[in-house]
Structure formats: C-alpha cells, structure tokens
Amino acid sequence: MNGFVYLKDVVTLELDREKCNGCRMCTIVCPHAVFAIENKRAVIVNRDLCMECGACEKNCPESAISVRSGVGCAAGIINGILRGTEPTCDCSGSGGSCC
C-alpha cells in the first residue's frame, strides 16, 4: 500500500490453515490485503502489512485466525501505562483529542 510498511516481524497474526473453510471473509475485511486464497484455503501473503486491527479474527466463522488486536497508537499506549489499563485512545473521556 503506497510504500507504507511499519516494523518487520512484530505482528501477532496467526492462521490455522487446517481450520479454514475457504469462505474468503478474511480477504474481504482486511484493509491491507494480508490474506489470499490458495488451494481453496486462506494464506498469509503480506504479514508485515498487518496492523493488528482484528477484523479477520472477528469475521472468521471457523475461528482459524488469531491476533492480539489493539490500537497501534503511541499516545494510547502511554495512556494505558499511566492508567494501568490496556492501550486506549479514550476519545470518549474528558475531551482529550483523538482519532
């Protein structure tokens, strides 16, 4: 995608091809074309493009995909550390600026 690639070999995306039923849902929902279908089953073709949004995991009816999803946002991670919670942008909070 337009030459935008973030760090290599860091994402937590896992696909269990044994469980895949070839429904193509992951290829539809992924905003970065991380998946393709080969031999009627999904395969990860652009692993480093994954932004861990979690859409594929959520829409896989066979639970063949797992990924630790969350906000890839430094301010959100700092927010999480300060409050002792998961990384959060917290737009709905006390009027802080966010996405």
């Binding site: 935008f4 973030y6 760090l7 932004m51 969350g70 946002c73 430094a74 301010a75 959100g76 991670i77």
Partner: peptide, 20 residues
C-alpha cells in the same frame, strides 16, 4: 512524530510497543 502512529492507517500495536 511517534504519536502520529495513532493517526496512521498501517501501524500495529505490537510494532508501536516495540518502537516505544
């Protein structure tokens, strides 16, 4: 600039944590 990761459309949580 690091905070701009939250605005982009391609950075992952694991990547930002590693960078930070």
């Amino acid at each position: 600039a690091m905070n701009f990761t939250g605005t982009t459309t391609f950075t992952s949580l694991s990547g930002v944590q590693k960078e930070m």
